[in-house]
Design a protein around this nucleic acid. Sequence first.
DNA 1: GTTATGTGCAACCAAACGTTGCGAAAGGTG
DNA 2: CACCTTTCGCAACGTTTGGTTGCACATAAC
Lengths: 117, 117
Amino acid sequence: MSTAVDDDLWSAIGDPTRRRMLDLLLSEGSGTATSLSERLPVTRQAVAKHLAVLDRVGLVHAATAGREKHFRVDETRLARAAAQLEEVGSSWDSRLQRIKRLAESIEKQRRESQNEQ
Amino acid sequence: MSTAVDDDLWSAIGDPTRRRMLDLLLSEGSGTATSLSERLPVTRQAVAKHLAVLDRVGLVHAATAGREKHFRVDETRLARAAAQLEEVGSSWDSRLQRIKRLAESIEKQRRESQNEQ
DNA sequence: GTTATGTGCAACCAAACGTTGCGAAAGGTG
DNA sequence: CACCTTTCGCAACGTTTGGTTGCACATAAC
C-alpha cells in the first residue's frame, strides 16, 4: 500500500544526468569525474558534484589511485533503488487496472439496466 | 539497451510531492489544489504549481466546476510512466545480475586454478 | 625542472520548489 | 440585495539545486 520509498535514494536517481552516470559506471565497470564528463554533455565539475551526491546516498564508492579518483557502483544499493522503481511502477499499474476493471463492471451494469426497460 | 526514457515524464514523477499527489488522486478519484493541500505538508499554492506541471506533461486533466477546479489522472499517461519506471528498474536489475554471474564464474575459475597447483 | 593531467574549491547564474500577501470570482446566508 | 466565506490566480521573494567559469594544488610524464 504505502510503497515505502526512500526519498533520498529517489532524488538521487531522479536526475537524468545521474541516471546516465550510473549507466556508464555499470557498463564500464568504473570511472572518474573526468572520464565520465567526456561522455556526458556537462562539465567535469558538474559530474564531480553528482558523484558526491551518489556517494552520499551510497550508490557509488570512491577509490583514490594516485591523482585519479575512481568510482564504482555499489551493487546492493543500486539493486535496492531498482527495486523501488519497479515497486512504484507496479503499484500504479495495479491501481490503474483496478480502476479499469471497476469502470468496465459499471459500464456492464449500465447496459444491462438499459435492456430491462 | 537504450531504455528510451521521456525526461519530461521522469522529472514530473521524480518529485516526491508530485508522486504523493498522484497517489492521492488515484485513491480518491479526483481532487482540487485546496483538497490536496490539506493532506500534504505544503501550501495550496505549491500544490497548484505541481498540478500545472503534471497537467503540462499530460499526467492529469482539469475540469472546472463553478469555483472549483477538479483534477484527475490521465490513466494512459500514468500507465506509460509506470512502465518506464519498471523498465529502468529491471534494466538495472538484469545488468547487476549479469555482473554477479560474471564475478561468480571468475571466482570459480580462480579456485580451480588454485587446485591445479 | 617543466609541462601536462586530474582534483578540489569558490563565485556566480538560472531554474525549481517553497513561502507569504493580495485581489478577484463564485457560492452561501442574513 | 448585501455580506461573508471559499476557491482560485498572480506577483514577489527566499532557498536549494544543477550548471557554469576560473583558479590553485597535487601527481604523473617528459
